[in-house]
Amino acid sequence: MSTRTETGRPAAEAAAPSRGLAWLYVIAGGIGLLASGALTLEKIARLRDPDYIPTCSFNPVLSCGSVMDSSQAAVLGFPNPLLGIGGFAVVVTTGVAMLAGFRPPRWYRAGMVAGSTVAVVFIHWLIASSLYDIGALCPYCMVVWAVTIPIFWYSALDAWPALAPLRRVHSAILALWYVVIIALVVQRFWSYWTSLV
């Protein structure tokens, strides 16, 4: 492992960004970007032709259509996936820049935490809407749920010293987080899942 010694600089500033976090930003952000893009294209196809059945609508449970048609799908007055295209593009760009040697200063990392906090709160509201209000699951949306959580979690661990003790069990917490959401999804659509077994 090559160590670039940069003596004389304060530790906090000299610290090179974690490559793991950079790769997470590139991969998870890229997946989120693709899913948001796919949802936007489906939305456009549906606007053009109201009879269009989205490619991700398989049955009443797995149905992008019912989710896309809900009022929660355009909270700010325009389709949510546009937020995703904007947000995930920033995440990917940050990841690539970090791989290229960019060392995000404190304020930048705080910004990533702030942005991803808004995103993670938003997707949990969307999860609740999807499960308990709309009563359908949209596969592309679930991809977005799945990538937003680790982006938030590792941004927070990276930038927030108070969370330092949790670094020791970082992926256990992430796994627990996923398990809780999966359990809620399984419970809510119980009769559907049992029909597949």
Partner: peptide, 8 residues
């Protein structure tokens, strides 16, 4: 090394 360690 001066590289910051992340859990990842």
């Amino acid at each position: 090394s001066p590289r910051r360690r992340s859990p990842l």
